Simulated scan of single mutants.
Amino acid sequence: MRHFGHLAPRVRDELFHLPPAEFDAAAPLDVLAPALGATLYSPATRPRLAADVRRQAARGVVSMVLCLEDAIPDGEVGRAEANLVAQLTALAAEPTGAPGSGPLPLLFVRVRTPGQITALVTRLGPAVRVLTGFVLPKFTECSGIPFLEALTEAEAACGRRLLAMPVLESPDLLHLETRTATLDGIARTVTKYRDRVLALRLGVTDLCAAYGLRRAPGTTAYDIALLAALIGDVVNVLGRADGTGFTLTGPVWEYFPRRPRTPGPRPPGGHLDGLLREVELDHANGLLGKTCIHPSHIAPVHALSVVTHEEFCDATDITGPGNGGGVLRSAYTNKMNEVKPHRAWAERTLRRARAFGVARPDVTLADLLAAGTPAPGA
């Protein structure tokens, strides 16, 4: 699979100076984590879940979470589990080369309890091959260790790599008096299981609930003082560029259009203004990828993840052979590139370029949005 793989080759060639690279679920974690992109959540109760996965893959979705937790009522868990097993089994049984049988997105299941991990893997049997891993809710050191132990047990039982994406959404993480100890415990836990932790996800809806808060459509997570402070502390402890950090993904955007969007190119504006602004702030604060609950969010998140030609030139200059230090004038002659301080940024930018590609110099955000947004009814 690859980002923007749903576009015709001619269109990709018009958009990209360097196209996104291909990858699959077996790729190393340092390739998969930056490539998660807009991770689309879907309730596991959906009766046509397998068809939904196929349809979203054809629209450019590269990662999905099939949810057994907050997205479904407590009384629906048993039915949701049975539906999930049936739908994933159907996906696994599709013959290679059948119509619409292109690469599946990276598929994760958001569970409620550690026992669901081992039970679902057992029930799936050979069909577990379509599953990339599990999303672990309300993750702390105390709650997270049983989840990761269950993941390890399930992995050994099925003989396949299964990855974890813990969600940081516990009130203990937000409360000032418990934040440091909670962050330290999370860091110890995910470091111990580093080879299984693909990325850490921020669950700001649950965090806002602890204070009775909800973002308005024009308000980003960074406009909420409590959330902004927490995101800064999470990046401080878990997002360091010294080899100890993890990929951190951006918080969910809750709003979507009431009616189908009209055809044609869409410049930035309208109901997605807040989302576009928040993704820009995610990147500025070291977060990459985003939890999404509506297909209309996919194209904006992916368009903003493409590396600009200017960023690429800066990154390649900084990491060029023989650059042991010093200051370089940028190829665009508008900034200073200082080799040592900017190297970690440059390396991170090149990893993003591999996943999302590098735009041609004359390609704008509006161009990427127009190309990546499916026509109504597609």
Score class of each variant (00 low, 15 high):
Leu107Lys: 04
Phe108Tyr: 14
Phe108Asn: 07
Val109Asp: 00
Arg110Gln: 10
Arg110Tyr: 01
Arg112Ile: 09
Arg112Pro: 01
Thr113His: 11
Thr113Glu: 08
Pro114His: 01
Gly115Phe: 00
Gln116His: 03
Gln116Phe: 00
Thr118Trp: 11
Thr118Tyr: 11
Ala119Met: 05
Ala119Thr: 12
Arg123Ser: 13
Arg123Asp: 13
Leu124Thr: 11
Gly125Glu: 01
Gly125Cys: 06
Pro126Trp: 00
Pro126Thr: 03
Val128His: 12
Arg129Trp: 01
Leu131Cys: 03
Leu131Val: 05
Thr132Trp: 03
Phe134Val: 11
Val135Asn: 07
Val135Thr: 13
Pro137Cys: 12
Phe139Tyr: 07
Thr140Ile: 14
Thr140Met: 09
Thr140Leu: 07
Glu141Asp: 15
Glu141Met: 15
Glu141Pro: 11
Cys142Ala: 06
Ile145Ala: 08
Ile145Met: 05
Pro146Trp: 02
Pro146Ser: 06
Pro146Leu: 04
Phe147Asp: 03
Phe147Ile: 04
Glu149Cys: 05
Glu149Asn: 11
Ala150Gln: 03
Ala150Glu: 12
Ala150Gly: 06
Thr152Gly: 12
Thr152Glu: 15
Ala154Phe: 02
Ala154Asp: 00
Ala154Ile: 08
Glu155Pro: 06
Ala156Gly: 09
Ala156Arg: 14
Ala156Met: 05
Gly159Gln: 01
Arg160Ser: 02
Leu163Asn: 05
Pro166Ala: 01
Glu169Trp: 13
Glu169Asp: 14
Ser170Pro: 12
Ser170Gln: 11
Pro171Asn: 05
Leu174Glu: 11
Glu177Gly: 03
Thr178Ile: 13
Ala181Asn: 04
Leu183Glu: 03
Leu183His: 02
Leu183Ile: 14
Leu183Asn: 06
Asp184Asn: 15
Asp184Gly: 10
Asp184Cys: 07
Gly185Met: 08
Gly185Ile: 09
Ala187Lys: 07
Arg188Thr: 13
Thr191Tyr: 03
Lys192Thr: 15
Arg194Cys: 02
Arg194Pro: 00
Arg194Tyr: 00
Arg196Lys: 13
Val197Lys: 00
Leu198His: 09
Ala199Gln: 13
Leu200Tyr: 02
Leu200Glu: 02
Gly203Asp: 05
Val204Cys: 06
Asp206Ser: 09
Leu207Tyr: 08
Cys208Gly: 06
Cys208Asp: 06
Ala210Gln: 08
Gly212Leu: 04
Gly212Asn: 14
Arg214Tyr: 00
Ala216Pro: 02
Ala216Tyr: 05
Gly218Ile: 09
Gly218His: 08
Gly218Ala: 07
Thr219Glu: 14
Thr219His: 05
Thr220Val: 14
Ala221Trp: 00
Tyr222Asp: 10
Asp223His: 14
Asp223Gly: 12
